[in-house]
Design a protein around this nucleic acid. Sequence first.
DNA 1: GGGCACATTTGATATATGTCAAATAAAAGA
DNA 2: TCTTTTATTTGACATATATCAAATGTGCCC
Lengths: 195, 195
Amino acid sequence: MQPEAFNTSKEILSYKDKIIPMLKNLLETEMKEYIQLVSLKKNDFLVREGEVCHYYYFVLEGILRNYYIKDGTEITTNFDFPNDIAANFTSLVLQQKSIGYIQAMTACKIYRMKASDFDEIKAQNPFMQQIKEILVSGYVILLEERLYSLQFCTAAERYHFMLERYPHFLQQIPLTYIASYLGISLETLSRIRAK
Amino acid sequence: MQPEAFNTSKEILSYKDKIIPMLKNLLETEMKEYIQLVSLKKNDFLVREGEVCHYYYFVLEGILRNYYIKDGTEITTNFDFPNDIAANFTSLVLQQKSIGYIQAMTACKIYRMKASDFDEIKAQNPFMQQIKEILVSGYVILLEERLYSLQFCTAAERYHFMLERYPHFLQQIPLTYIASYLGISLETLSRIRAK
DNA sequence: GGGCACATTTGATATATGTCAAATAAAAGA
DNA sequence: TCTTTTATTTGACATATATCAAATGTGCCC
């Protein structure tokens, strides 16, 4: 848990592999009171529409799906795998009601930490500060990537990009959700896959 | 320049109005050596493709356009108005070559601050830390907003959303760029506008 | 193993949006 | 002012993708 563990500018993309071990270290210290282990059964919700999100969630095991409902249809915005951070950023940061859901697609084990506790620890521990920056930077890069992909790429391009970048999605997520995540219909996705 | 100036969780959306005055305060201190004023003529570039972006840019006057080139076509990703922060985030954070351009659409006056200097000041000044979080959080919220809009909304919905959220865009930006920003063709935009 | 829910594919058609071309309109220069 | 350039609109048509419907496939439970 030394400050040297990260090189902020270069290792952001691999940050995920380091957060969970770091949290496990925290559990050995007096800060363990800030971290709780949450277990979810399949289909349980971590965050519901209308709730304010107060926690960062660090996924240990399982897969979660982020989605919201527009005109009666579920629209998938993200998937969280082990070592990912699951949170409704806008709700967390602005302390406003979440417009979406985070739901367990499988049984999950998750560490959670209250955002206010995180900030408190951060004030005393510059390393935690660095962690937060890395988390947020990683998220920004992910968002930019997805944004550009949606703005400029055809459905087929987006699918192939996803295949390359997140090959594990295809193995563990039903195509309905993947289609929604890519912003296309299930049928179009199926046709793209048939080439 | 007191830490109390912001309430992190609530005032993020209005952060822009406060950054520039804060920088002007910094100019009164020994930290002024870290801040430079940059003047651009219309069509000058702030960042070019292939360059690594080392600075945060705080726009005082003028309008800039962020775009990149795909298959020979310019694709507009963002516009920067006074009080906005112009930067190629991915390039800045990962210290990798920018895939896009930031170009002045009008004459501009801009404060710039090296990212490394910013981090140095930040280490000694918790208020700067807070500023950075607010900057980044504001950017994340903007990205999420744009992402959801692109993933789920029709061209017409996106246009009307932009009208509501950024009415100044229409007054000062040619429709070609707005169309590109919305991810639609100029002709489709024109038809949407004709209702 | 047979039946049932759910996931995926395939087909026919509808719709939104893109593309190309041309007509106007507005702005900029001389 | 007149002329040239640039911006925007309009029209005809092409294309990508959505939608609805049905067929097929797959895993699961009794």
